[in-house]
Design a protein around this nucleic acid. Structure first.
Lengths: 148, 148
DNA sequence: TATTGTTATACTCTATAACTATA
DNA sequence: TATAGTTATAGAGTATAACAATA
């Protein structure tokens, strides 16, 4: 028999929300040393994973407004992490591709996230940790966005 | 042997961040029907759980600026969900207490979150769901804030 | 006329700092 | 002088809508 929570704080929805927002803030703090924000990392990841090249496609894949992709891409280009190339076949389209510097930054961002994972899950057993990875993957897959 | 993620998207940190932010947005959408936002619900929950009465204490418990507690409390008072009473012993302090209407709203907010939990975890087995609850509780306890 | 990208604008959220009342 | 609360202001983040170039 399942006991119902007395307040929303006991629900998965609120716990997931609070933990997620907290963890994203922590990650943002680490990323600042690279001049990146979490959204930059997600955009770079989407490019490396392939499947989205034009800015409109990226906006749809990330679930954000196209105008935000313009801004994020501007900032990433200023860092030398991506290059914009006009599609010769359709000159309206800008195709984004990750530069060597972008690859390096993304590798560093990955390392920072892995370190943060280790710190965050230090209180968990190895089994719990593996289970958490597996379960979050299922939930993410159900959302469709950003299949790794 | 653990395989390292090729991009940050494969890490717990980023998955937790993305899922948490998404779920919070969904919850905010449902709460709008009650005139509430997630932060209101967390403040009300903190009051019901006890341990924080003055606005300063609440700010510390929620990890937000005191000025934000003022704003949230103003909005909750306008909804009739809380009442402010001056502490006679120290007239600088405002003690917040949940009204009957606030109790009702908090119960409704809990029901909405429980419904959302069910929808969100429909893709999970009962065992996975139980494991997720247990593991998130451990992570939340490690953070200290908002023990249910 | 429709679509891609861009720019202009506005709104939400939240923090910092200045201020008031009380101690 | 120090503290609880409040108000004023500012910045970050993101969306919507108008616009330009190309199809």
């Amino acid at each position: 028999m399942v006991e119902l929570p007395r307040t929303p704080v006991g629900t998965l929805t609120v716990r997931l929300g609070v933990l997620g927002v907290t963890q994203e803030a922590r990650y943002a703090g680490r990323l600042a040393a690279l001049g990146l924000k979490p959204k930059h990392v997600i955009l770079l990841s989407a490019l490396r994973m392939g499947g989205a090249e034009s800015q409109q496609e990226l906006a749809a894949a990330l679930g954000v407004a196209p105008s935000l992709v313009v801004l994020l891409a501007d900032q990433l280009a200023a860092l030398g992490a991506i290059a914009r190339v006009r599609d010769p076949a359709d000159r309206r389209r800008q195709r984004l591709h990750v530069t060597d510097e972008g690859d390096r930054l993304l590798d560093e961002a990955t390392a920072l996230a892995v370190t943060l994972d280790d710190e965050r899950t230090a209180v968990l057993s190895a089994e719990d940790r593996a289970a958490l990875i597996r379960i979050l993957e299922k939930l993410a897959a159900a959302d469709g966005l950003l299949d790794a």
